[in-house]
Design a binder for these strands. Structure first.
Length: 882
RNA sequence: GCCGGAGUGGCGGAAUUGGCAGACGCGCUGGACUCAAAAUCCAGUUCUCGCAAGAGAGUGAGGGUUCGAGUCCCUCCUCCGGUACCA
């Protein structure tokens, strides 16, 4: 076998690793542990995409190098196997989604093994395994059993929730209701995104421009009972704890942006009769700012309390509870029509028509707490019920949207901020004339006793002023919404929740958790998977004995919603630690030993949702003592997208999809791995190139021929290899390569590491005396990148065991040094010549040699030397004048 | 609009963080080997002018700091990703 033949050597070594359990990780790390995790794939019917092996190869290199460096490495793989496509396939074919899912997993597993990744396959899990989702359900029950204590800023067992005496006095049902309102998992009737085409409700995040992210079907809003997870309670911690993570700043910014924390003030506008305003105001001054609102008050949220004096109208969302009360009889018809129109609007309409502001006047007025002025209350859909208080004070002079609205409806515009000096005079004049909007900071005008204050100080002063009088308070808001956690699908985790029924078979509204020891709640048998086109979930068609269990003599109906696909991926990194544990999701001793994940690599498409959801669950588990670290993923890296050869996103429709199977068949797995790492920086988007694959394949062939005699009929070493002592030049090449490759792997700079190894082969293929020791070191350096060929070469070099645990080569700094060094000499910054000096030459002799250089002398002749810069080891620059 | 990231040869990309721009690979050109081809090996390859020696220009554009800028600062342009009435 003289030629490099990946088709022969790759299956051989894959079988060897499997047979010898080479990459099985210990239960607990022996010495330094390293947990390296890939984002596990959704096993789609299309099989592996070339994007998958990019991140997987990167982590594999890190793991293989770390093992050789003596680390105890945990490197698992599994499958995120719940999801819509399998269910849609089942609807079309009538085949149970589990069958298709398992088929897809088999394909993925085969493809992953074909690429020679050093996973501990003994830990493989799939989120659809009943033994896995048993614990997903268990974690849901933990969340259900938790309330968030705002004082301690942490989740606590619901049994520790203090029950106010007034509630307790109303009996156990009231207590239950009080608790249920505060659980981290709660039910809500909120309007949801119902997609008739998919037959399901979607999360806000799954709706793009009013259409389903998957399939692009229209989505309408309708109210439906849903399970929600109170992720907003953790918003502050989710934002704060980003600080300690070793993540790219861009990804952190994405998450911060998504959480969208803003600080400002809430303020109450009196909507009772104007004559009673003074009485209301002084009554307010005697107590604290009320948490619960009376219905004579409109509460608003603003980030610009300094513009309170500029409020010329109010806006409430069409869904605001005070619409009824505020609408006067002569405006009722118009308001009703507007509300209906707004309700019918899809999100698409609301966003696409974003420039057009619409609204109606209610006929009522609210009184500005700072100046007692009565201003009209409008209804407009540019104010969202789901953010802040669902009501705003409108300051058209200093808010783009309010300005547009005021212009549309001829509402007065009153400037209260004098623009700063960076604004041109004529623009500032326009602002002061109410002809232009100005949203930045400045100095207060038209604001009574606050005139002359700068924006920042004014904000603080007015907030305090409001708080003192019981009229307002400082407030924080988030763009982040609670997580809509239920789906009307079959192929998802069932909720371990039972709804109590009365004797007539109607739900009483009381809910109980399935007892822990009765988990898992498996999916029932269904005769068919077709949706019925109504929002009720397919599980409503489950057999009676599944659907209506009896517990302690009471009849219940099971929850028929299922969990979203995100659920399984929220904690899989924990199960990998202890995948077969039947008593707990993970053994605490094991969890403490391995967590947190040291390196997590995956696509940037999960930068917000998956990572935020997983962090949220982790924090609840942390609060409940299940895990020991506040964050799950210490270091995160997002691999860049691999584009087609035409520089476009790979897509079937574009005909530019590259199939890993084809590449492996033609070039081998080592070439695929090496190419994907050589394309460019891991995090950058890069176009595929078949010629590039061919290039790295040639390199492997060169490396092969450097060591193997390719003219022989049997595998034997190239006759140039022998136990010769390395020359000084050889030593420099060897140690420079060891140093660079080692450092580059640590920096995840795989493309440059490969370039250094190419330089190594370029040097040694020119030598007809190749020291065996040099070849061995090289093979070890190459092995994390191209493990199959490396194992084969290692064996040819006379070793009879895997190199997976051979000590990693160490470089010797003293062997890198050269006796002389070539220094560039510049005159006035332009390169004019090069001198060769001894490495330890002093500045004076370097300068003398530089001046003596004929070319340099030519350019300095007859000119006055102004300055000479000597940077030892780098260059000389002589500055002349004249 | 806002928030991120990026613009370097024919192409993918390097460049100790302020010090020889273009490592390494692809492609291309020439050569060796061969009856010939494939494979392999060797040499060259930023652009412009020049037979050459050489000279000049050059990291999206323009300005600045510096002995010296792909790298730092200011202004702007283009592309990619995210987000979008969040008060």
């Amino acid at each position: 076998m003289p030629r490099y033949n990946p088709a022969a050597i790759e299956p051989k070594w894959q079988a060897y690793w499997e047979q010898h359990q080479t990459f099985a990780a210990p239960r607990l790390p022996a010495g330094d542990g390293l947990y390296v995790l890939d984002m596990f794939p959704y096993p789609s019917g299309n099989g592996l995409h070339v994007g998958h092996p990019e991140g997987y190869t990167a982590t594999d290199i890190v793991c293989r190098a770390a093992r050789m460096q003596g680390k105890s490495v945990l490197h698992p793989m599994g499958f995120d196997s719940f999801g819509l496509p399998a269910e849609e396939h089942a609807i079309r074919t009538g085949v149970h989604p589990r069958i298709q899912t398992e088929k897809n997993i088999s394909t993925f597993r085969r493809q992953l093994k074909m690429l020679g990744f050093s996973y501990d396959w003994g830990r493989e899990i799939a989120t659809t395994d009943v033994d896995y989702f048993r614990w997903t359900q268990w974690i849901f029950l933990q969340i259900y059993d938790t309330w968030f204590d705002p004082d301690e800023q942490r989740g606590r067992p619901i049994s520790e929730l203090p029950i106010p005496g007034a509630v307790a006095a109303q009996g156990p049902d009231a207590v239950c209701a009080y608790q249920d309102e505060r659980r981290l998992a709660y039910q809500s009737e909120a309007p949801v995104n119902w997609c008739p085409a998919l037959g399901t409700v979607l999360a806000n995040e799954e709706v793009v421009d009013g259409r389903s992210e998957r399939g692009g079907h229209p989505v309408v809003r309708m109210p439906l009972r849903q399970w929600m997870l109170r992720i907003t309670a953790y918003a502050d911690r989710l934002e704060q704890d980003l600080g300690g993570l070793d993540w790219h700043e861009g990804i952190k910014a994405l998450q911060r942006n998504w959480i969208g924390r803003s600080t400002g003030a809430e303020a109450d506008f009196y909507i009772g009769d104007k004559s009673s305003f003074d009485g209301w105001k002084s009554a307010r001054g005697s107590g604290p700012f009320p948490a619960k609102l009376a219905d004579d008050v409109l509460r608003i949220y603003t980030t610009r309390p300094d513009t309170l004096f500029g409020a010329t109208y109010m806006v409430i969302a069409p869904e605001h509870p005070l619409v009824e009360r505020l609408t006067t009889p002569d405006h009722r018809a118009a308001v009703e029509a507007y509300r209906q129109q707004a309700a019918a609007k899809s999100d698409l309409d609301r966003t696409e028509l974003s420039q057009e502001k619409t609204g109606v006047f209610t006929g009522s007025y609210a009184i500005n707490p700072v100046n007692g002025e009565a201003i009209p209350v409008w209804i407009a859909d540019y104010v969202l019920i789901s953010y802040g208080t669902g009501a705003i004070m409108a300051v058209p002079a200093h808010d783009e949207r309010d300005f547009a609205f005021a212009q549309e409806y001829s509402i007065p515009i009153r400037p209260v901020v004098q623009p700063g000096d960076h604004i041109p005079r004529e623009e500032a004049a326009k602002v002061l004339a109410g002809e232009q909007v100005y949203v930045e900071s400045g100095v207060a005008i038209n604001s009574g006793q606050f005139n002359g204050l700068r924006t920042q100080e004014f904000k603080e002063r007015i907030t305090a002023w409001l708080a003192q009088r019981g009229l307002g308070r400082q407030a924080v808001n988030y763009k982040l919404r609670d997580w809509l956690f239920s789906r009307q699908r079959f192929w998802g985790e069932p909720f371990p929740i039972l709804h109590e029924l009365d004797s007539a078979g109607k739900p009483t509204g009381r809910v109980r958790a399935v007892p822990e020891e009765q988990l898992p709640v498996d999916l029932p048998h269904l005769d068919d998977f077709k949706p019925h086109g109504r929002p009720e979930p397919p599980l409503d068609k489950a057999p009676e004995e599944w659907l209506y269990p009896v517990v302690e003599g009471k009849r219940y109906k099971r929850e028929t919603n299922t969990m979203p696909q995100w659920a399984g991926s929220c904690w899989y990194y924990l199960r990998f630690l202890d995948p077969k544990n039947a008593q707990a999701p993970v053994d605490p001793a094991i969890e403490q030993a391995w967590m947190p994940v040291d390196l997590y690599i995956g696509g940037a498409e999960h930068a917000v949702l998956h990572l935020l959801y997983a962090r949220f669950w982790h924090k609840v588990l942390y609060d409940r003592g299940v895990v020991s670290t506040p964050e799950p993923f210490q270091k995160l890296v997002n691999q860049g997208m691999i584009l087609g050869e035409n520089n476009e996103k790979m897509a079937k429709s574009r005909g530019n999809v590259v199939n890993p199977d084809d590449i492996v068949r033609e070039y081998g797995a080592d070439s695929l791995r090496l190419y994907e790492m050589f394309m460019g920086p891991l995090e950058a988007a890069k176009p595929w190139s078949m010629e590039g694959v061919n290039g790295v394949c040639n390199f492997l062939g060169r490396a092969w021929r450097m060591i193997i005699d390719d003219r022989s009929d049997r595998v034997q070493l190239n006759p140039a290899i022998g136990d010769w002592p390395p020359t000084d030049e050889d030593q420099r090449v060897i140690h420079r390569t060891i140093k660079s490759v080692t450092e580059d792997i640590a920096k995840l700079s795989f493309n440059t590491a490969i370039a250094r190894m190419m330089e190594f082969t370029n040097h040694f293929t020119k030598q007809d005396r190749r020291p065996r020791v040099a070849m061995e070191q090289f093979v070890l350096l190459l092995s994390p990148f191209a493990p199959h060929i490396a194992e084969e070469l290692w064996q040819s070099l006379g070793h009879d065991q895997t190199l997976a645990y051979e000590p990693w080569p160490q470089h010797d700094e003293s062997l890198l040094a050269e006796a002389t060094i070539e220094l560039p000499v510049q005159v006035n910054g332009k390169l004019r010549g090069k001198i060769v000096v001894s490495t330890d030459a002093d500045q004076g002799s370097i300068l003398a040699a530089a001046r003596a250089h004929p070319k340099v002398a030519e350019y300095t002749a007859g000119k006055a030397e102004v300055k000479a810069v000597v940077v030892p080891g780098r260059l000389v620059n002589i500055v002349v004048k004249g």
